[in-house]
Amino acid sequence: MQDMRLKLHIWRQAGPEAQGALRTYEVTANEHMSFLEMLDVLNQDLIEKGEEPVAFEHDCREGICGTCNMVIDGRPHGPQKGTTACQLHMRAFKDGDEIHVEPWRATAFPIIKDLVVDRAPFDRIIASGGFVSVNTGAAQDANEIPVPKADADDAFSYAACIGCGACVAACKNASAMLFTAAKFAHLEKLPQGRVESERRALAMVEQHDAEGFGACTNQYECEAVCPKEISVTSIAMLNKAYRSAVLKTRETV
């Protein structure tokens, strides 16, 4: 196992209001470590030296909880396609590399500390309409409504979103359209979800806008960095649904 010496430039910011800056650190890693394990090694070092460790969020380290979030060399979650930072392994780097590590940058995601940002707007977008209005116990038998396999598979591919926010981080406009549209498309593809389609499109898009995210500019950087490789077809679906919902809705405008 070959050791690799790396130079890291990491964004350090003591608190939400504090002035942040990139600080440079050196760390020795090996190719079997995950990127976050490499940061663990750095942090253990820092603590032993009496410095404050780098704050970064992480939890499952299996690429599914969506907690980890960092921009590695300008790419959310780093250079490997379809991979979260926690699943990125150091074999994607080589000895002597310099690596920049920065937080998600978006006005809607204010920095809490170092690489930790506040992604609460995502919850509010879901709360605005990203659900099916069914109370516990009100459901009919699960096989009552057959769903074409292709639709169920499509719905799944959108529902696979882990809510990490990489789409926002990658978009030059810090737009959360892929996140918003993925949830919309997931429910739109299922008969259970379609009932509330119009209300959902209106509420979710307008909440997205109210949170201060930018507009989608059809560059598809979001799709390129999405660790779950969610398709921008969802955005086209939402574009169409929102337009037609505004023009058709019987809600008082």
Partner: peptide, 20 residues
């Protein structure tokens, strides 16, 4: 204006993946 307000601080190291 919306887009500019949505990100006021950029990245020290930027990378373009697929945008033309």
């Amino acid at each position: 204006r919306r887009n500019r307000a949505a990100r006021t601080v950029g990245y020290a190291k930027d990378h373009v993946n697929v945008a033309t």
